[in-house]
Design a protein around this nucleic acid. Structure first.
Lengths: 343, 343
DNA sequence: GAGCTTGATTGAAACGTTACAAAACCAGCT
DNA sequence: AGCTGGTTTTGTAACGTTTCAATCAAGCTC
């Protein structure tokens, strides 16, 4: 494979000049520029990223680590980040931790040997001390997405989770529901806690009672959500509507209903967080509180690039994005047959 | 950040020795090994991938380029490939071309400057001359996935598309259907052509006529598939069952039905290629011909690694994987109200 | 105790770039 | 002709590794 020396030889200039046309083309005269470009073309020369990253102190690589690339939220996120990164000449290194923190830590080490310029991290689970130090060792700007980890001083871009919880619940209340099930993630996670807070707040605002029986922790996962939904249905006074706080759990909830032959919204109403590509395709078309995924990815990369450029400094800021309520058909008036309870 | 020299100094050995513990630990005495390891630990040393890739002639990077990471098929594929690659100490560089060949070509150039060790490519669209030469210039082993490009001599792992088409169609025929719509991709693509061939063959085997009106090209995309389904329904003699030849088009078809209030399988039966994570959740639970995505990813990486190790050589082989028919509820007997036509 | 063998350790030369200071060039002035 | 000040161009020392031949130590054998 051709090196910069070969190009220099062929164009009859010094290697320094070739390097210049690569990096600051304006510092070289038009005629040499043309000669060099021609030589590169003829040899189909491509610079060696390794050598470059060795000499400059930057690799042009940006790490993106997510918990589950199979989750549409994360694949959309990757797409957004990669598009934006391409525009600034960066390459995105995607790491999928499969929600296992050991894998995530292994990935962080990998990313360090790659000498990434910056990291976008959607942290899985709680923040271990171990991981915090791995992050610090990277010695590069870091932007958190989806889940913020307070106290570490990193930039973050997150959904306004309280509001998302509030709007979803409010929408159901507006449809006439009074007993609303909540299939939530574990409260130790900030996102879950905030979504719950929004739910509470909406109930309170409507003067509705809060029944702890209606609140379930399904670990943000599909299978447990299915189980949780089953339990809710088995309650002496089952809810007339359910709010699932992420997309995986929405699938679980819908499946539980389908398995029991319950129609929606006739028998029970459903709303979820995260819009899904097929939400429009299934019947009923699912209502949801959508996250502005693309905007979140772009915002994250923007923060990162600004840190890299030095145009942003000081302690990390948290960028809170507004959810968007997408109303389709899965929420209707409470089933007449079921008791719409007033507590 | 600590370098190999720092480690050597601290452990009071030569850099060569440190390098040895990194690469062939068995060639160094236990006591020096321990000293070096301790020094690395203390300095939290991590090798510089760039420098390494410069000196050895390999980067430890493997490229994976796909058309649409948002498509569950591809995100599953990435997951499988990354898992397998991690086991062999490779890092996967994912590139998403958004089905645009210019982006794909830009990515191939990027991958060349990264000096990837090998490439797994799910080619989008037809093979341009330009792209063929870009691939050749990479000068690394290449494995094609999903769509083979004949004549270039690369290894490939693909679905047995003919059989997939055959089994899906046969299943519908077995349910009693005689007019079966086919929502297919463009026939210039081998995959689409073969799936069509399987469809034909199944009809032929059952002694059923082939009605060209029932066959539509929806470009493997959702929106056109919705449109195609609408056209099929508007036919004077609409089909009693539909077979969509990929997951995006299945969504489009289902949506078209839902929009018209058509129930499935009561009004019309549906089967698709590619299983979907939510196929079990919607009602009706969708039947499908599943691709063994994980196995395909693993097979692709395996081929690549064997080429790299030199244990595989000679012309490329094509690895044909068997589809798996997953029967759920979306296919039933033809609607009594609709004419089950005998041509 | 001299000569071998074997295995562990090391010095130093690459690998392909970029950065920086030095050199060369070229007008335009005195 | 000799300067000056400004561009272009260039030589060369890093950057952090690995590789490979060379050295060294230690245990054998005769």
């Amino acid at each position: 494979m051709a090196t910069i020396r070969d190009v220099a030889r062929l164009a009859d200039v010094s290697v320094a000049t070739v390097s210049n046309v690569l990096n600051s083309a304006d510092r070289v005269s038009p005629e040499l520029l043309a000669r060099v470009r021609a030589a590169m073309e003829k040899l189909s020369y491509t610079p060696h990223a390794g050598a470059r990253s060795l000499r400059k102190r930057s690799s042009g690589l940006i790490g993106l680590v997510v918990g589950d690339i199979t989750n549409p939220f994360f694949s959309d996120l990757f797409e957004a980040v990669e598009d934006a990164a391409a525009a600034s000449g960066h390459l995105v290194l995607l790491c999928n931790s499969n929600e296992r923190s050991e894998r995530e830590e292994a990935h962080l080490r990998m990313l360090r040997t790659q000498r990434i310029d910056g990291l976008i991290l959607a942290p899985t689970g709680a923040v271990s001390m171990n991981r915090a130090s791995l992050l610090a060792q990277l010695e590069v700007p870091i932007v958190l997405v989806d889940r913020a980890m307070e106290g570490l001083g990193y930039d973050a871009v997150v959904l306004d989770n309280r509001r998302a919880g509030f709007e979803a619940t409010q929408h159901l209340i507006g449809c006439g529901h009074r007993r609303i099930g909540l299939v939530n993630g574990p409260e130790v996670l900030r996102t879950a806690a905030e979504r719950l807070a929004g739910y509470r707040e909406a109930l309170l605002a409507a003067g509705l009672p809060l029944d702890p029986d209606l609140i379930r922790d399904a670990g943000f996962r599909q299978q447990p959500a299915e189980q949780a939904m089953a339990e809710l249905l088995a309650l002496p006074q089952p809810p007339s509507a359910v709010f699932a706080t992420n997309n995986l759990m929405t699938v679980g909830v819908v499946k539980a209903l389908a398995d029991r032959g319950l129609a929606c919204p006739q028998d029970i109403s459903v709303i979820g967080i995260d819009d899904l590509p097929w939400a429009e395709a299934v019947s009923p078309r699912l209502s949801a509180v959508a996250q502005p995924v693309r905007a979140m990815g772009e915002a994250a990369l923007d923060l990162l690039l600004r840190r890299l450029a030095g145009s942003l400094s000081g302690p990390g800021t948290t960028n809170v994005m507004a959810p968007r309520l997408v109303i389709r058909r899965s929420c209707g008036a409470p089933a007449s047959g079921l008791p719409a309870h007033v507590g």
